[in-house]
């Protein structure tokens, strides 16, 4: 039968980024398929907030414990099985200067503590990110993935990312044409096409996940069929999206919705499993339990 199995014809592999000992992308088929000598495997990142916020979902408050301190959390993550570590520099808008100062103070220590490949994330606020991301790009003691630039911020942020040799995450809202346009615009500015990761800016489980799911599948199809401006690896910040959902936050649901502690983790797990099945190359998680579970299940490989 082996010889009769229908194979996917591709023109080109998804670009492969060699990053701090990891191979990101390089897909030669759809996920988990080994045809065309595909060796691509999804990578898992754990994401930690730099600052503790009172409105974190209960499940994460439990995970972070009392007296959250980013340096301790980074230390703890060293012994977890995440392929990458992502730090979210969630500067608070009512104390921007103080928070900047604290980041400045602790940055070197963080680079020191962790040996994991790093993703450094901005606030998702253009005004802050235009200051923050160039600072991180400059201060990083090794190559990092820096997230993200978008159409309204790339001109200000990109030069320092290029200069310091980082990998750039480009975010475009679930639209394949916009993704291509941004890839062209940024490479025109001097960004290396092999240093781009696409963020399709998708919704989490129950809140538009379907659009993102299909955009990932389409991006992969177009990439594998040889479009050199769309064959970059894909990253999904599923943790952030999952914990926006009321289902992952509220304990006020009826019994049929399941116990809160379980549901809140499963909300992220189901979304993460789906985007991995669709073809995401890096999945960024917030819950340690989801990380451990996913690592177990996809690690049966």
């Amino acid at each position: 039968m082996q010889e009769k199995l229908p194979q996917l014809k591709i023109s080109e592999k998804i670009r492969e980024i060699n990053f701090q000992g990891l191979r990101i992308g390089g897909d030669a088929s759809v996920p988990f398929m080994q045809e065309n000598d595909s060796t691509s495997k999804p990578l898992l990142a754990l994401e930690l907030p730099f600052f503790y916020e009172e409105n974190f979902p209960l499940i994460l408050k439990k995970q972070y414990g009392e007296n959250y301190e980013i340096t301790d959390a980074v230390k703890k993550a060293e012994s977890l099985p995440n392929d990458l570590l992502s730090i979210r520099f969630n500067i608070r808008e009512d104390r921007i200067d103080k928070d900047f100062a604290e980041i400045n103070d602790k940055l070197d220590e963080i680079f020191e503590i962790t040996k994991k490949p790093l993703i450094l994330r901005g606030k998702n606020n253009n005004d802050i990110d235009k200051k923050l991301l160039p600072l991180l790009a400059k201060r990083a003691t090794r190559q990092c993935i820096i997230s993200f630039v978008e159409d309204t911020s790339y001109e200000d942020i990109l030069p320092s990312l290029i200069e310091n040799n980082h990998i750039t995450v480009i975010r475009t809202p679930i639209d394949i044409n916009l993704a291509k346009e941004m890839n062209i615009l940024t490479t025109d500015k001097g960004l290396d096409t092999n240093k781009i990761i696409i963020d399709p800016d998708m919704g989490g489980l129950g809140y538009g996940l379907d659009y993102g799911f299909s955009i990932i599948e389409k991006l992969k199809q177009v990439g594998l069929s040889g479009d050199k401006m769309l064959n970059m690896p894909i990253i999904v910040f599923i943790g952030e999206e999952s914990y926006k959902a009321k289902e992952a936050k509220s304990t006020q649901y009826s019994k049929a919705w399941g116990e809160y502690d379980k549901r809140a983790i499963m909300w992220e797990l189901a979304g993460a499993s789906a985007v991995i099945a669709a073809g995401a190359n890096i999945v960024v998680l917030w819950s340690e339990k989801s990380l451990l579970t996913l690592k177990g299940v996809i690690g049966w490989n």
């Binding site: 489980l205 129950g206 996940l209 379907d210 659009y211 799911f213 299909s214 289902e247 019994k255 049929a256 919705w257 399941g258 116990e259 379980k262 549901r263 499963m266 909300w267 797990l269 189901a270 979304g271 789906a274």
Partner: peptide, 20 residues
């Protein structure tokens, strides 16, 4: 039969099977 599992799974199904 675990309610949290079923609810998460059926929500995923709801997403995947909507008409794009």
């Amino acid at each position: 039969i675990d309610y949290a599992t079923i609810t998460s799974l059926l929500t995923l199904r709801q997403s995947i099977y909507t008409d794009p």
